[in-house]
Design a protein around this nucleic acid. Structure first.
Lengths: 191, 191
DNA sequence: GTCTATAAATGGATAGAC
DNA sequence: GTCTATCCATTTATAGAC
């Protein structure tokens, strides 16, 4: 029975997080309050403290959840085969992931919330993503020092410009294939 | 005498803006209040309304100032000559500009402040930067559609990753030359 | 587990005296 | 031009009743 209680508790936690994400998408990553979240789930603000230690704890759970979602996307991708195909699929998946949820992009990849730092547990997920990325590129014989960093800079740059300067459009997302070709040509000639 | 008054007024405006920048660098772009700014310049909060219409007006002036600073940097750069040289100088200048002041980077290139939109006058400066960039690249015969956008994505990506994930270090800034070579090789082969 | 009530602080902004 | 005083709203968070 404690099991059922724990399940219900966890379900409510997820409801709260989903409400927070929805508000972030509507009003910006920092444009909502605990009262707003509480109202969205039919509660009063103090009741949230039964599920989270405070607003930063909610941000931390969102941070972890965002990276878990990214890891799930990476799991669906092919990791071997033609480098252009593997990188192209990965690039589109990643940029889509970022552009489809700008506040998530800000939370995961930019330092936007004054005072907020992810917990060690949450940050470990971020490192896991990096580690997977490194493994994928290494499998393609792209493992010069800095290659992963150049790759992430290129993709987050495209995504960030798209979200900030042409929300809803495709001015930068349509450059993804060109960026992949550029990256691959450059890296392969020196591999 | 009205001239002297206007000069003093403008000087105080600059003092206020400089205090706001300093606070933004210390506590994050949104981590300060009008009271904080006022205290920094030896005033009380209401007195600021003699110089700005409110907090968003300060953000707007900062936005304009940031782009004016960027335009000034661009003015110091060579715009003709060896493409690798021109692009390399420009890339280093731009990334340094971004990394040296992360909150400025957020204000100019990311949508971070809930509800804030730059005024038409301020936004015109942003378009002026883009226009200059376009002219520089066109002079180098790099004027395919999308070339400017790929360039800005690459450079803001490097700068953003550097500021967010290795503040004070050089993990991404040291990739600037490599990024320039990559970009130039790719663009020249199709020009 | 959720509520009311409230603390305690902070925020942007305005009115009116000097 | 700057101040004091204050408004009014908002925020995170806690105490304690039910």
């Amino acid at each position: 029975m404690s099991d059922r209680r724990a399940q219900r508790h966890e379900a409510t936690r997820q409801e709260i997080l989903e409400a927070a994400w929805a508000l972030a998408r509507e009003r910006g990553l920092t444009g909502w309050s605990l009262r707003d979240v509480a109202e969205s789930v039919g509660m009063r603000a103090p009741s949230l403290y039964g599920y989270f230690d405070g607003k930063d704890a909610i941000y931390d759970a969102m941070f972890a959840q965002g990276y878990e979602q990214l890891l799930a996307r990476l799991d669906e991708l092919p990791t071997r085969g033609d480098p252009a195909e593997v990188l192209g699929r990965g690039a589109h998946a990643f940029v889509d992931f970022c552009v489809s949820d700008p506040p998530r992009h800000q939370l995961l990849f930019q330092r936007v919330i004054p005072g907020f730092e992810p917990s060690a547990e949450s940050y470990a997920l971020a490192r896991e993503v990096l580690s997977r990325l490194h493994a994928i590129l290494a499998d393609l014989d792209l493992d010069r020092p800095g290659t992963v960093d150049l790759w992430t800079a290129l993709l987050t740059g495209l995504a960030s410009q798209q979200a900030s300067n042409d929300p809803g459009g495709d001015r930068w997302t349509r450059l993804v294939d060109r960026a992949v070709d550029m990256f691959l040509a450059s890296e392969l000639t020196r591999a």
